[in-house]
Simulated scan of single mutants.
Amino acid sequence: MDARFLGITELTEVPSVAVVIDVMRAYTVAAWAFGRGAEKIVLAESLDEVRALKAVHPDWVALKDGPPAEGFDAVNSPGLLRSADLGGRTVVQKTTAGTVGALAVKDASLVLCAGFVVAEATARVLRRRECDAVTFVVTGEDGRAEEDLACAQYIARRAAGEEVDAADHLRRAMESRAASELTEGVREGAHPDDVALCVELDRFPFAMVAAPDDSLMVLRPYAVPR
């Protein structure tokens, strides 16, 4: 498998297959939302779009980066979301990097969104579809986020059928700048357990596939046969 690892700004063409990585925290949060029963997640382009969708669909769950804010129901924290009852609900998510990355490759034939919590299921999709070329979108820090790159490289190796010791990849994530900022309270809207939850390997058995749905980009869980 030919794997490329690019930041969002380095995307010069639409890839055939894209895996969008945001470990801390967008796609860990998305996986937890599905784990708590959410039916789908709308990936919004802006906070204004989230507010507009919420106005039309007041039962939808509006989620954003940073501290709690009026008009929003949740923040981008797995530790804060893990106790939520989202059974059958639609979540509207806008984050600094993760949602931006998915929207940047929305015209790809296959878009997977991932973190360590769905790593093996994501790799299994790529193996089953026999993808020859995959672009991994490393969303954090203009493509340099160590936690995202470590996760992308791990999934790429597993997709290629390699037996991989995950310990080094997880260590890189735990020692990343993002992990330090979460631990030290630099990032608002966080929970003390967020880093640990973001490096919980294969917590969920599903992959997450994003695809256009009318005018929206919608993320859904995808059960991968073993």
Rank of each mutant, 00 (worst) to 15 (best):
D2L: 14
R4L: 13
F5L: 01
L6H: 01
G7F: 02
T9K: 15
T12M: 13
V14W: 08
P15T: 03
P15G: 02
S16Y: 12
S16K: 14
S16H: 15
A18W: 05
V19E: 00
V19S: 00
V20D: 01
I21G: 00
D22C: 06
A30P: 05
W32L: 13
W32G: 10
A33V: 07
G37T: 08
G37I: 06
K40S: 14
A44E: 02
S46F: 12
E49C: 08
V50F: 06
R51L: 13
A52R: 15
A55Q: 15
A55S: 14
A55N: 14
H57P: 06
P58W: 04
V61A: 04
A62P: 05
A62Y: 01
A62F: 01
A62L: 02
L63D: 02
D65Q: 06
P67Q: 11
P68A: 10
G71L: 12
F72L: 07
N76R: 01
S77E: 06
P78I: 05
S83P: 08
S83M: 10
A84L: 13
D85N: 12
D85C: 08
G88E: 09
V92C: 05
Q93W: 11
T96N: 12
T96V: 11
G98L: 03
G98D: 01
G98F: 02
V100D: 05
A102M: 10
V105S: 02
V105W: 00
D107K: 12
S109F: 05
G115E: 01
V118C: 10
E120R: 09
E120N: 12
A121V: 07
T122E: 09
A123T: 05
A123F: 02
A123C: 06
A123W: 02
A123P: 04
A123N: 04
V125L: 05
L126M: 06
R127P: 05
R127T: 11
R128L: 13
R129C: 06
C131A: 14
D132E: 15
A133R: 14
V134E: 00
F136N: 00
F136V: 12
V137M: 02
G140P: 03
G140N: 03
D142L: 12
G143E: 00
R144Q: 13
E146F: 07
C151S: 04
Q153F: 04
Y154R: 08
I155P: 04
I155G: 03
R158Y: 08
E163T: 15
V164M: 11
D165P: 09
D165C: 09
D168G: 14
H169V: 09
E175P: 10
E175M: 14
S176F: 00
R177Q: 15
A178W: 01
E184S: 13
R187D: 13
R187Y: 15
E188H: 13
E188Q: 13
A190D: 10
H191C: 06
D194M: 00
V195R: 04
L197E: 08
L197P: 08
V199L: 12
V199G: 07
L201Y: 06
D202I: 02
R203G: 07
P205H: 05
M208C: 11
V209P: 01
V209Q: 02
P212Y: 03
D213P: 07
D214P: 06
S215N: 13
L216E: 09
L219P: 02
L219V: 05
R220K: 09
R220E: 09
P221Y: 04
P221S: 11
P221E: 11
A223M: 15
V224Y: 01
P225M: 09
P225V: 10
